[in-house]
């Protein structure tokens, strides 16, 4: 039982971090109709900026601020110089160009920081475990990640639902030509949305970098899962991305726990473990396939 609660917390923590990645991806696709494979690179930029600033100043909060700023700046520059030329092209051109960006970002980072992973330390006030009601020991930092992730999600919801910018973003996702015709400066809106998405990815990179390792290419595995999330949630829907991220996070963590246990009922230990964990790593893709059969446009998707 304690194990179950701990795994649910782990699933939530994974889910909210995925949401930070997926939110930017789905906004960019929803508003601009652009597939951005380089989103994982912005995650990496955030992590490296945080590691560099934390190394130089020793302050974790400064490191997070640097991650936000660096990723947003990188996003804005990329939008102004490269992405802007891709809006009218088809998806294949976008995929090719943003894949090239991945290579440029990766090799650029390798050039400046080297191939060795960097390590970002958890600040002292968040290290160690806390005892939760029911006697569960859980790392403070992971609990803080859940809190930060939920707060950012709430902030994003308020931004999109309650502000003028949010109205424009939603309008842009509905009908780009119409809001341009109504006098909204669409190119400024695009740069802003892209930088916002990039900043969220950079924040996720910095937060996760502190418990894992900061290395070149760290963004790509997360990017693949983030794509699964936005496909499940419905492309373009931030609410869908939130629900999808939590579903994927929980499925992944609980699947890894229960599948081997189920296989152990009729197989011996090692074989059950190997089969179970192999199947558990496929589980989120099976979930995606199931959702797509049931609702081809995703849970909250507007367009089919």
């Amino acid at each position: 039982m304690l194990l179950l609660i701990e795994q649910v917390l782990n699933g939530l923590q994974y889910g909210v971090m995925l949401f930070l990645m997926a939110a930017g991806l789905t906004l960019v696709f929803g508003v601009m109709g652009l597939i951005n494979l380089a989103h994982g690179s912005l995650y990496m930029v955030g992590a490296f900026a945080a590691a560099a600033v934390a190394g130089a100043t020793g302050s974790f909060l400064l490191a997070l601020a640097a991650a936000l700023a660096a990723a947003a700046a990188a996003g804005a520059i990329v939008e102004l110089t490269v992405i802007r030329r891709l809006y009218d092209r088809d998806h294949l051109d976008q995929v090719l160009a943003t894949f090239a960006l991945i290579l440029i970002f990766s090799e650029g980072t390798r050039y400046f920081f080297g191939s060795f992973p960097l390590y970002l330390d958890i600040p002292a006030y968040l290290s160690g475990p806390v005892t939760l009601p029911g006697g569960i020991l859980y790392p403070t930092y992971r609990l803080a990640l859940i809190g930060v992730g939920l707060l950012v999600s709430l902030g994003l919801y308020l931004l999109i639902a309650r502000t003028r910018l949010g109205v424009r973003i939603r309008a842009g996702a509905q009908d780009r030509e119409m809001i341009a015709a109504l006098g909204v400066d669409i190119s400024k809106l695009y740069t802003l949305v892209f930088a916002l998405g990039a900043a969220l990815a950079g924040l996720a990179g910095a937060l996760v970098g502190a418990i894992q390792s900061v290395q070149v290419g760290m963004g790509e595995p997360v990017l693949i899962v983030a794509f699964v999330v936005i496909v499940i949630g419905g492309i373009g829907s931030v609410k869908g991305a939130f629900v999808g991220a939590l579903m994927v996070g929980l499925t992944d963590r609980l699947g890894g726990l229960f599948l081997p246990a189920i296989f152990r009922l009729f197989m011996d230990g090692s074989a059950a473990q190997a089969t179970g964990s192999a199947l558990a790593s496929m589980l989120i893709y099976i979930l995606m396939a199931g959702v797509l059969i049931w609702r081809p446009q995703g849970l909250y998707g507007a367009r089919a």
Binding site: L2, E6, Q7, N10, Q13, Y14, Q212, M218, R253, L257
Partner: peptide, 13 residues
Amino acid sequence: QTDYAAEIAQIRA
């Protein structure tokens, strides 16, 4: 793999 939260939970249990 870089996140071992799930494995650590199982070790604990």
